[in-house]
Amino acid sequence: MIQVSHLTKSYGHRTAVNDLSFEVQKGEVVGFLGPNGAGKSTTMKILTGFMPATSGSAKVAGFEVFENPIEVKRNIGFLPETPPVYPDMAVDEYLGFAAGLHGVPKRSIKAAVDGALEKTSLGDVRSRLIGNLSKGYRQRVGLAQALVHNPQVLILDEPTVGLDPKQIIEIRELIKGLAGDHTVILSSHILPEVTATCQRIIVINKGQIVAEDTIERLTTRINKGLIYSMTVKNPSASGIDAVRKVPGVKSVSAVGPKLVVEINPISGETRDLIVAAAVHESMGVLEFSAERVSLEEIFLQLTTVEDHQV
């Protein structure tokens, strides 16, 4: 659905996007992750035909962005960083305008507006002036604007900025619900957001892709092994020794009743054996859990590694 190859954008001497290549399949929800100023918004603006790239090519819905901008724009719904809303218009009037602007035929505009209002649960405020709405509502109106012409591709630049936690959850659910029918690219510098909504993430730093994978695979890739933590009632030296002898266990460290067990990543399923060893030594297992390295840590590792190279 989206193919980007060797995309570069320079502003004078500053390179905002440097030789970016990636693909997004139909129906995927992909997260663009990166610190502020990494080139996320620039990439999105290029994809939406707002600005041309310095070199490279981008294809959306089968159309080359630079050769066929009108066709591309017809197939994209775009929510920029600042929701592009007119404060002096009512919500439904504005959505009707956005629908008309995106080529929705006159007789279907009302249905399109009603659909977008329902998806973003804005029905209650449909006849209010956008200028009188709170920031969260305006953000949702912006999202409704991106959805109103039912585009194949949705490009959302930080869609949940400024929303309260309840609204954030609603918007995330909404975005997840769009997967399958729509192809979605969303950008964020907030990691849990990407974890919550995206199937795949592309980490960008300084205009370059530093990682691109599913969240699970990224986690294991950085983890280089799994860590389990086990809390026991009666820690004993012989028990710890027995756990250490389980095949695949790299190291065991004990602090009071808490044992931290590190496993070689290739050793397969070892949890049964570890727990069995502990039970056999009658340590009294109270709790056993896998510790995950959070996306925050992955992100920091990826972006700091990049810093070392530069």
Binding site: P84, Y86, Q145
Partner: peptide, 9 residues
């Protein structure tokens, strides 16, 4: 809002 106009077809 110019961004809405300029990213519309």
């Amino acid at each position: 809002t110019i961004e809405l106009l300029m990213t519309a077809p």
